[in-house]
């Protein structure tokens, strides 16, 4: 069995950020606190801090992405790093160059960090195992495995609205089976001490051993949403409709789409979240997405601060760790 804590250095500090699974509560709190420090940078006149000046970061995206790639890019630029965006479509990857050869080429350009998105579960771990020792790897989504920066920005958003985690009920609705976002959220919520985590969806979209992840499974959204503090809706990939996962969009919306009447079952101060991009009328009604309980756009804003925090911490330059160093 391979070393389990590849993302930590010998002193337990973050060296890569690949998954939330197995991290300590204090590490997550440090990330949230650091992000809190960075959250004002975007509203300053000069939207920059010099923490990563002289560092080169490569965004290596094997899957298309707008939001995640843009917020990673902004985060890096606000930390004064140099950023290179590389989009590798499946067609150019199929020219026969192996992932490892590609990495060696980028390493040869003297970079300090890879931000990686890849369609295969475990790709970020694989890259972290094989990069030169001075390079950090941040997982920006690998297959159905993990999307840990998304998971952390969601925790940041929840903490801003709910202060404490230990008394919350959180419901995650939709395609849990294929969702790397859901897996990262579930790990983070468990580590931060949320006592009631629910996943809601038909069995075709729930992984078989969901119980082992520390969640309660609901098939009826009305039972599942009752008295929750946070509702997280997941995007339903269109291609799931073409297989035998679900009969139709219409039936899905009827059963699992978040509408005002279903949301009314949650606590009156419940917040509604979604990692985006949203499918209006498939998993969420427009009136809810744009309604007063929705924090969907806040999540996007918070994504920048969280990514600044994680990038600076993995490169050993966080304001928090600097303070400790004094």
């Amino acid at each position: 069995m391979k070393q389990q804590d590849i993302q930590l250095d010998s002193e337990g500090r973050l060296r890569h950020f690949l998954t939330i699974d197995g991290l300590k509560r204090q590490t997550l709190v440090d990330i949230l606190d650091t992000a809190e420090n960075f959250s004002t940078v975007g509203s300053q006149n000069v939207k920059k801090v010099p923490l990563l000046r002289g560092k080169t970061i490569i965004n290596l995206f094997f899957e298309p992405s707008t939001r995640t790639r843009t917020t990673f890019e902004l985060a890096a630029k606000r930390l004064s790093a140099d950023v290179l965006n590389i989009n590798i479509s499946t067609s150019s990857a199929s020219k026969g160059e192996s992932l490892l050869d590609m990495l060696r080429n980028f390493e040869a350009m003297f970079c300090d960090m890879f931000v990686v998105r890849h369609q295969t579960s475990g790709a970020a771990h694989f890259i972290a195992e094989h990069v030169a020792p001075h390079i950090s790897v941040i997982n920006a989504g690998d297959g159905s495995h993990a999307h840990p920066t998304q998971g952390m920005l969601d925790m940041f958003t929840i903490r801003r609205h709910k202060k404490e985690f230990h008394n919350l009920s959180v419901a995650i609705v939709g395609d849990i089976l294929h969702s790397r976002v859901a897996r990262s959220q579930i790990h983070a919520l468990n580590i931060l001490g949320v006592p009631d985590i629910r996943v809601i969806g038909p069995d075709t979209l729930i992984p078989k051993s969901a119980d082992n992840l520390g969640v309660h499974v609901y098939h009826d959204i009305r039972a599942g949403l009752r008295d929750v503090d946070v509702v997280i809706m997941l995007r339903l990939q269109r291609e799931r409709m073409t297989g035998a996962m679900l009969p139709s969009e219409k039936e899905y919306f009827q059963c699992y789409g978040l509408t005002p009447d279903k949301l009314a079952l949650a606590r009156p101060d419940a917040i509604v979240m979604h990692p985006g991009p949203i499918n209006r009328g498939v998993e969420i009604a427009s009136s809810v997405a744009d309604g007063p309980q929705s924090v969907i756009l806040e999540q996007v804003t918070n994504g920048i601060a969280i990514r600044m925090a994680i990038m600076s911490m993995t490169l050993g330059r966080s304001p928090v760790s600097d303070k400790e160093g004094v």
Partner: peptide, 15 residues
């Protein structure tokens, strides 16, 4: 195997 580990790691399962 479609089970605990495939669930945790997001691997495609064989039941």
């Amino acid at each position: 195997h479609e089970g605990q580990v495939s669930t945790r790691l997001g691997l495609k399962g064989i039941p």
